Amino acid sequence: MLRDALKGLTVLDFTQIAAGPACSMSLADMGARVIKVEPPEGELGRGLGPAWVGTDSALYHGFNRGKQGLCLDLKHPDSRAIVERLVAEADVLIESMRPGVMARLGLGFEALSQLNPALVYCSISAYGQHGPYAQRAGVDGILQADSGLMRLIGLPGQPPCKVQAPVVDVVTGYMACMAILAKLQQRARDGQGGHLDVSLMNSALALQQSSINSYLHDGQLPTPIGSAAPYAAPNEAFSTADGWLMVAAYNGNRWLRLCQVLGRPALGEDPRFLTSALRVSNRGQMQAELNALFVTRSTDEWLQRLGEADILCARVADYDDVLQHPQVAASGILAKVEHPRHGSLRMVGFPVNSAEAASEPYRPAPSLGEHNHEVLRGLGFDQARIDAWQRTGVLRQAG
């Protein structure tokens, strides 16, 4: 079963907010044991709200399900014994600190690979481990700006826009997960671990490969054009009598059928609009013609009429619409996680469907230091020593 695929794999998670937690949560969703190691004040993502689940953010709960929580002061000299025992038994370590920070804590790849040569060590950072920007911090919005993504979003003549969902963070997390799985496959052949360098910048560029590849070919800087695709038309949203409808009818036959459904078959033979390339060049004129037609009926009416003609279309949905979408319900992507203090929490679950049923329900995100004792007893430390570490501040735990 896919949800059991990584059982037996142990992952140490030294990451915060979204990119690293998305990576480690994906591994946990596939069955890995993930130990989330947090600083005494807790990871930054706990405080990023609204919305809130108790005192922690919904963002934190949504990116950290299925993990065990260990709260450890890495600056305390006594933490070294714990970290060495953790690393010795781990398969993967993921960290998202600024390059050099882990090394200064004695936790860099070179030091830890001496303890465990098979360790797959994944560093996630804003700009990568090397180069002139390596020491620069960065978050999703900064990389949306610096990678050019914000220049693609919005309307002509309007201020720059960003995608509100942290798409660069999330795609970086998935990239890191993919790289870790590939490295584990390589390790199965040669027995060696290694250091993976995953950056938000490179992931943001990969996210834009169609636009960047076009620029590399023709040298034309892209400009924001709202919902439209720069390479095909019509492939954009149109206003209806009661909402918005996204239509993709740039294929020759679909364009002709669209004009028929709209009651303007002659428009399909208009010399301005005979090909997708011509419609892109004359997009403003095409939009004016189509807008005047789409606004005459409701979104539901157009969905039915266009669907019957096999024309690609969709309602421009808000989250109320999405949560009532029949395919969303059928896919099982919306998960319920039972939390011991907060009850049933709804969140986006593992996005890949499998022919087999899930082997077990999702487990909630840990409270700060929730599994300190469980993890350390599993490493062979006795209770007296664990209690002493708790008293001296090596370990922390939420009340």
Rank of each mutant, 00 (worst) to 15 (best):
L12M: 02
H217K: 15
Q390K: 09
L345W: 01
V352Q: 08
E84G: 06
S79N: 07
V170R: 10
L216Q: 14
A126I: 01
G128F: 02
M347T: 06
L256E: 06
P265G: 03
D4F: 05
R46E: 04
R305H: 14
Q164L: 15
S147R: 00
Y174I: 14
A335I: 07
Q390L: 12
G284M: 11
W244G: 01
P132Q: 09
E43K: 04
L345S: 05
G141A: 14
M286Q: 07
W255P: 02
G226N: 10
H217L: 15
G141Y: 07
A118M: 06
G349A: 00
A51S: 13
T240E: 09
A90C: 02
A145E: 05
D91Y: 04
D218H: 08
P230E: 09
A206H: 09
D4T: 15
V352F: 12
G47M: 10
D140A: 06
V120A: 03
S26Q: 10
S199G: 08
H373R: 15
K162V: 10
Q304T: 13
Q220C: 10
E370F: 10
H195A: 10
P77D: 09
V37W: 04
M150Y: 02
Y362L: 13
A248Q: 08
G148I: 03
S354M: 08
D13I: 03
G268T: 09
G194Q: 09
P224E: 08
G45F: 00
L152H: 01
V53Q: 03
E308K: 12
A237C: 11
L323R: 11
E43G: 08
G131L: 03
N213K: 11
A206K: 02
F14V: 03
P50A: 02
Q16K: 12
T15F: 00
C177K: 11
K7F: 02
A81L: 11
P224A: 11
T15W: 00
Q135N: 15
P234D: 09
L86Q: 05
A111F: 00
I35D: 08
L115H: 04
E356M: 13
R136T: 05
D300V: 11
S354N: 12
H130G: 04
S203R: 06
P50G: 04
V11G: 03
S298Q: 14
Q114D: 14
P160D: 08
S125K: 03
Q135D: 12
Y250H: 13
T240G: 07
T15I: 05
Q144H: 10
G49M: 04
A111M: 08
D318A: 05
P160Q: 07
Q327H: 15
L258M: 09
L323P: 11
V37A: 12
L303M: 14
R305E: 14
R305S: 15
A51D: 13
Q285N: 04
E84D: 15
R272I: 01
N251R: 14
P117R: 00
I35Y: 06
S354F: 13
L44C: 12
I124V: 08
F63Y: 12
N235V: 07
S147M: 01
V348L: 12
F14Q: 04
G148A: 08
R363H: 13
R46F: 07
H61Q: 09
